[in-house]
Design a protein around this nucleic acid. Structure first.
Length: 470
DNA sequence: ATGTGC
């Protein structure tokens, strides 16, 4: 792949092979070495009808279904632009929530084992059914899909202030539950308030570094402070919605005269019945994902309250797998675009009207989950953020799950975490080996490059004290 | 990511 170095940590792939726009890859030379194969997917995405500006790749890019994970693509509906479920991914609305405790690590230490045991009992996780709340039939699921975190808070799982610190106030307005199929509903009904498996986790963390005292304080973060980070998505419901709508679009594509370089890029115009149906179902899954994180926050709060009386207040909740209709200025013209972010986090700049009033001047909080036993980050959006105000979402895999599981045994991993002073409560030690840190890129490098490329800035770094995983 | 692989 021919890459033109355009600026610091910014590379361009010039249009060829049916590309309508260039590819723009944000990376260092080291990170590019891991990205080589997935750049082909950046090229494929650049061929989508109606794509605007560029097919972007974040520094944590890796191979995904159709689109790369770490990809950003915006399309213009008025210019034949399409929407593609592959541009969001199977885990619709997968995202991260960070809660700040009113105590520091030193104070928490004596109660840590008790808290971890409490979380071990309170947090449903792993594949299959099980959640903290079983909606009372189809009516409640319907409201959950329409109202997201708002409904969870209304039902007593949280406080009104939580909603102010959620992307979209905790619910997107354009959810259309009629486009969520029966199987998706059945799977979703029994998984409300559950973590899932793979790289999803709930961690008790401590702030290890602060890079901007003022912004950190405004976000509610200080050196040494205890936090809880939750990384999860929309479970089987989102997965089923993606499966269903990929199939529908795959069949419909030809009728719109659309051809794509990879069948996994199945798409239809944003303004088509199929496009609107997907966006409506996707928004319902987005609300499910937010409610899921809200319910797990409530479960964690209860454990902390009982163990030490500590309170957890929400810093922010943001997704990294979503398509959204947003207004952006392109070459001096304001346009309504369908922005696909897949393994990429929205990072609105300071002053953006959609940000909570009390932190608006600092830019949107961006939450980056680390991999097992490594650091996580709180970042902030910056003015001029290159890729439709998006940045990285995490470390990004370099090893397959199979490869990772062969590289270390459960007991070796267990010993390492214990040595690092991290209290782990996995559902199974065997399953955890797929998540060994060597299977991922270095999150510190990914975040440093994202900042260097002008996509975001670092606010605080967090390290794990305890981890709950599927 | 996922009642993991058509």
């Amino acid at each position: 792949m021919e890459l033109v170095e355009e600026g610091p940590f910014r590379y361009r792939i010039d249009p060829h092979e049916g590309m309508r726009v260039p590819g723009i890859v944000f990376a260092s030379r080291e990170l590019l070495a891991d990205a080589e194969q997935s750049l082909e997917q950046v090229v494929h995405v650049a061929a989508l009808p109606g794509i605007v500006a560029a097919s972007y790749a974040m520094p944590d890019i890796h191979w995904g279904y159709g689109f790369p994970i770490g990809g950003v693509a915006a399309t213009d509906a008025d210019d034949g632009g399409v929407v593609s479920p592959g541009g969001v991914g199977f885990d619709i609305s997968c995202g991260v929530r960070l809660l700040a405790a009113d105590c520091d690590g030193e104070a928490l230490r004596p109660a840590l084992a008790e808290i971890m045991d409490g979380l071990d009992r309170a947090i449903p996780r792993g594949a299959g059914p099980g959640g903290v709340w079983r909606p009372d039939g189809a009516g409640e699921l319907e409201r959950l899909l329409a109202e997201g975190s708002r409904f969870a808070v209304e039902r007593g799982y949280g406080e009104e202030r939580d909603l102010l610190r959620c992307e979209d106030g905790g619910a997107v307005a354009d959810a259309d539950a009629t486009q969520v199929g029966q199987r998706a509903r059945e799977r979703g009904l029994v998984q409300v308030g559950s973590l899932g498996s793979a790289n999803h986790f709930l961690e008790v963390q401590q702030v290890s570094d602060v890079y901007d005292d003022t912004t950190a304080a405004a976000f509610g973060l200080a050196p040494g402070q205890v936090c809880v980070m939750i990384h999860c998505g929309s479970r089987g419901l989102g997965h089923q919605i993606c499966t269903d709508h990929v199939r529908l679009m795959d069949r419909a594509m030809a009728r719109y005269g659309i051809t794509v370089p990879d069948r996994q890029l199945a798409c239809t115009p944003v303004d088509s019945p199929e496009g609107r149906a997907y966006l409506g179902a996707m928004a319902a899954a987005a609300n499910y994902g937010r409610a899921n994180r809200q319910l797990l926050s409530d479960a964690a709060r209860e454990v902390f309250r009982r163990a030490t009386g500590a309170r957890l207040s929400l810093v922010y909740d943001v997704s990294h797998n979503l398509a959204k209709i947003e207004t952006h200025e392109v070459d001096g013209v304001r346009r309504q675009l369908c922005v696909h972010r897949k393994g990429a986090t929205r990072a609105f700049p300071p002053g953006h009207p959609e940000l909570p009033e009390d932190i608006r001047e600092f830019g949107q909080p961006v939450l980056i989950p680390g991999t097992l036993g490594t650091a996580s980050y709180a970042l902030a959006g910056v003015a001029g953020g290159g890729a439709f105000y998006s940045t990285c979402h995490g470390a990004g895999r370099t090893m397959s799950r199979h490869q990772a599981a062969r590289s270390i045994t459960g007991s070796q991993l267990r010993a390492r975490l214990r040595q690092a002073g991290i209290a782990a409560r996995p559902k199974s030690w065997r399953g955890l080996t797929e998540e060994t840190p060597e299977a991922y890129k270095d999150v510190d490098a990914v975040v440093a490059v994202s900042e260097g490329a002008g996509l975001c800035r670092r606010i605080a770094r967090l390290v794990p004290l305890g981890v709950v995983k599927g």
